[in-house]
């Protein structure tokens, strides 16, 4: 297992979770520092469940989660969000009935900095959102919706951002743009990122370390540069 760069932000110890009594995540141990930490795996590996568990949207069946040294295992999601964990779900990531601007302001209801300041930063990160701000989110394209969801998460002033397959189903242009933004968010704004992705090639370009999930278990955790195609294929059970 590779070393966590710097002090761990997030520490998962033997975490188990799932739905309706079915265990999907089967005892994961890992740490995330101020880095881009990619979670790769085939469909059904448990990537979405893992991120929802870290965001505290799914209760733990066992184990514990620490965030910046504090045990957040029993905290409701609205309290973990307040501590700096931002979450961008794969689907239904926007409030369809609200405008783009309203979506962003809902994200900015927590945090201490002024909303205007944060909004300006989000518009700088995603300039398209500024022109779309009066549009109802339900009428946006897939790529625009993902931008709104990511922008709204950034309005929370996150310390750690959980991104669940942000480029799934998007055109190549949007995919490239999103991976550039992920790098920008991490490098210029100092936000740690946990990135669940199907697109292993692109994820490995931006990630510092990788965890390959296989049927809810960590097949390996490795520096992105050290991961071999053979390991990846074994992890994907190809």
């Amino acid at each position: 297992m590779s070393e966590t760069p710097g002090t761990p932000m997030l520490k998962a110890e033997a975490i188990r979770s799932g739905y309706h009594g079915v265990t999907v995540i089967k005892g994961l141990d890992f740490e995330v520092g101020n880095e881009v930490f990619a979670v790769l795996g085939a469909n059904g590996a448990g990537k979405t469940t893992l991120l929802a568990t870290l965001a505290r949207l799914i209760p733990l069946m066992g184990g514990r989660i620490q965030f910046r040294g504090e045990d957040v295992s029993d905290l409701p999601p609205y309290e973990t969000a307040g501590r700096g964990i931002g979450y961008v779900p794969q689907e239904k990531g926007v409030f369809a009935e609200l405008t783009v601007l309203e979506n962003l302001t809902v994200g900015g209801m927590i945090g201490e900095r002024s909303q205007d300041e944060r909004m300006a930063e989000v518009f700088e990160l995603f300039p398209d959102l500024e022109t779309l701000q009066t549009q109802t989110a339900g009428t946006l394209s897939g790529g625009e919706s993902r931008m709104v969801a990511a922008g709204r998460a950034m309005m929370q002033d996150p310390i750690l951002l959980l991104l669940d397959e942000p480029t799934a189903g998007l055109s190549p242009l949007y995919v490239d743009m999103f991976f550039e933004k992920i790098t920008e968010i991490h490098e210029t704004r100092g936000v740690g990122i946990v990135l669940a992705e199907q697109n292993a090639t692109k994820a490995l370009e931006v990630a510092d370390r990788v965890m390959v999930l296989s049927l809810g278990e960590a097949f390996l955790i490795e520096a992105a540069t050290e991961l071999t195609t053979k390991q990846l294929k074994e992890g994907y059970r190809i």
């Binding site: 965001a55 949207l57 409701p76 999601p77 609205y78 309290e79 969000a81 307040g82 979450y87 779900p89 239904k92 990531g93 926007v94 409030f95 369809a96 009935e97 609200l98 809902v106 994200g107 209801m109 927590i110 709204r152 998460a153 929370q156």
Partner: peptide
């Protein structure tokens, strides 16, 4: 509109 999403954004 989307209660789980609102919850994940820090809303009680």
């Amino acid at each position: 509109d989307n209660e789980p999403l609102a919850r994940s954004l820090g809303k009680a």
